[in-house]
């Protein structure tokens, strides 16, 4: 399954949930903010959020800034 994650196309084993994707990427869900096709996904909804071919995801987190 192809997904566009942070602007880059990537191939994952599908079907998948958002929780599965975050784990596959080796990221810590507790500090992550996720937009799925432009919509913010609450952390408690990561497990039930199904991903489909061509979906766009933005994974952001906090970095140093002024």
């Amino acid at each position: 399954m192809k997904l566009v994650v942070n602007g880059k196309e990537r191939v994952f084993e599908g079907p998948a949930t958002l929780t599965g994707l975050i784990a596959a990427l080796g990221l810590d869900a507790s500090t992550l903010v996720v937009e799925h096709n432009g919509e913010l996904v609450r952390r408690e909804d990561h497990g039930s959020r199904l991903l489909r071919e061509g979906d766009r995801l933005e994974l952001v987190r906090f970095v140093g800034g002024g």
Binding site: N6, L27, T31, V33, R61, V63, G64, G66
Partner: peptide, 19 residues
Amino acid sequence: VTVALRRVDLDNPQDDMLG
């Protein structure tokens, strides 16, 4: 204290500043 939001670098994920 101020922080910024940025895309995670998927090839080199670094620690979150909140930690």
